[in-house]
Nucleic acid binder design. Structure first.
Length: 476
RNA sequence: GCACUGUUGGCAGAGUAGCUAUGCAGCGGCCUGCAAAGCCGUGGACAGGGGUGCAACUCCCCUACAGUGCUCCA
């Protein structure tokens, strides 16, 4: 495909034409979950965004190598130097081994993502599987004078890295004068962050290193795993917008400090979901879990809900809105199902005619997706096609209808919004029941006809009477 | 305090230098055993103030407000 893809690059704060290092191949790393709690809607939205990015790149013909990590060690409840390991803390509360908790949460994560059509990454490495490589990186950074040991711990010396904070546009002088609280007086600079942390006695998740028995700093894993599986320079590095000032800033310092090469050519960041205008977050306890959303509106509408806003827009979330999006989703499904039913009962040849219209819609869709993943614009094209489906069906314009169906399927697949399929015998069965019901209605036996409607409804078939003789249905 | 981002109709949410979407909700009508839907029609927005332009909601500057980050969070 020849479409040029444009992505908003956080580093330049501009939309840029996407050019990978090797033509046709994309080395893509996204920061994954720290696995200790349920996936909430805000987390899920971010993973949906990366999934849409991957699907779009593949749709446009790229071979994408996607690596997304699981953080299972080193992510602390406080800043990089103080506080307890999040996983260890939660595991202690549940009276289980930290790694048991991690395994449970990783399984849950995959299960949840499968439900909303988020494809698995090519590689999903765990931090604990890369302790040796992390130690190697720390050693290299010490050799290159980017890091120093302090009482068994190792810190990155941010003054040794000229461009520290450049992508985030940090004003280091003001950070020091501002809200940052200095806790460790031994550090060279208040902003120096831990690469290796000496473990207190009661700490469970600890590993042997040249400096102490301890554990790695949180930022280290992404530098190590992206390098191991994707190379020195990534084409795209993605993460939540909150990662810009600290996590990604530190990753850049580590990776570029070690390789002296550019760490990532494109930085893509996903904006937050808010609740009543405030960030949805674990600490604010204002979150809705993905499971709750799916329970409320179903998995297809859940995916639709998480896809409908542009990824860089801070969208407000509520279950009420999600119910709204549910309606929109099933409006599309209904058009799809009516078209399937119509074609199912069709006899005779389908004549070849002009198919420009659907192709034009598809071009609009391609253009929208190539323009920094403009999903709202793309969804408009889906609505348009759904409407066209109804029109072609009513007109009996079968060729156009089939073409439009193809286009709809393509667009839904790229966005990862699932269609609900109907089997042939399923269509026949429901139609038979409906024929019976229409007869009962004609005889004025509304009790019996309502019973059939209720029965079908319990099987997720939604009936809508168009007239005394005609009933439309679709499946939820 | 400093930095970044944003401010579009009742709500959600795109977009373009000159005509603006789309969806839900609303209003009027048709249809209707009930339920639900459908169809036709319709009103409704570009935070405020400057500037550049033949023309700005769209570009630039300032102000106000909001969100996020600087402290764990996608």
């Amino acid at each position: 495909m020849t479409d040029e893809i444009y992505l908003y690059n956080t580093e330049t704060r501009k939309k840029e034409k996407f050019i990978p290092q090797v033509e046709g191949v994309v080395q893509f790393y996204s920061c994954g979950q720290t696995v200790y709690e349920d996936v909430h809607v805000g987390n899920a939205k971010t993973y949906v965004v990366w999934d849409v990015l991957v699907k779009t790149l593949r749709y446009f013909g790229y071979h994408v190598n996607h690596v997304q990590n699981f953080t299972d060690v080193g992510h602390l409840t406080d800043d990089a130097d103080e506080g307890e390991d999040k996983i260890q803390k939660k595991a202690k509360a549940l009276k289980m081994d930290p790694m048991e908790l991690v395994d449970i949460k990783i399984r849950e994560y995959h299960h949840n993502m499968d439900k909303i059509e988020v494809g698995r990454p090519n590689i999903a490495p765990r931090a604990t599987g890369h302790i040796n490589e992390m130690i190697d990186l720390v050693r290299l950074l010490i050799e290159k004078k980017h890091a120093y040991e302090l009482d068994g711990s190792v810190y990155y010396d941010i003054s040794s890295f000229e461009d520290y904070g450049k992508m985030a546009r940090l004003d280091l002088d003001n950070l020091e004068a501002g809200a940052r609280i200095e806790v460790n007086t031994g550090k060279k600079n208040p902003g120096d962050f831990a690469l290796w942390i000496k473990a207190p006695k009661e700490h469970i998740m600890k590993y042997t290193s040249p400096w102490s028995i301890g554990y790695p700093g949180w930022h280290l894993e992404c530098s190590v795993m992206s390098n191991k599986y994707l190379g020195d320079t990534l084409d795209i590095h993605a993460g939540g917008i909150d990662h810009i000032p600290v996590h990604h800033t530190n990753e850049i310092a580590q990776s570029e400090g070690a390789t002296d090469k550019k760490f990532a050519n494109y930085w893509v960041h996903s904006a937050f979901i808010t609740v009543n205008g405030k960030k949805m977050s674990k600490s604010k306890n204002n979150f809705v879990t993905l499971e709750e959303l799916i329970k409320e509106v179903g998995r297809g509408a859940a995916r639709f809900t998480l896809t409908q806003a542009h990824y860089r827009t801070q969208a407000d979330f509520s279950l009420e809105q999600a119910r709204n999006f549910r309606k929109r989703y099933y409006r599309i499904i209904k058009s799809y199902h009516l078209a399937l039913q119509y074609l199912h009962t069709l006899e005779g040849e389908i004549k070849d005619e002009d198919r420009n219209y659907s192709e034009k819609i598809l071009m609009n869709f391609n253009k929208a997706m190539a323009d920094d993943l403009n999903t709202p614009q793309a969804i408009i094209q889906i609505n348009t096609i759904a409407k066209r489906l109804d029109q072609y069906r009513k007109k009996g314009d079968n060729f156009q209808l089939i073409k439009a169906l193809e286009v709809l399927r393509t667009m839904m697949t790229v966005l990862g919004i699932p269609l609900i399929e109907l089997k042939d015998d399923e269509i026949d069965n429901v139609n038979n029941m409906i024929s019976l019901r229409i007869k009962l209605k004609a005889n004025g036996d509304f009790d019996a006809s309502d019973k059939i409607r209720d029965h079908l409804s319990s099987l997720n078939y939604i009936l809508q009477d168009i007239s005394a003789e005609e009933t439309q249905w679709y499946k939820e």
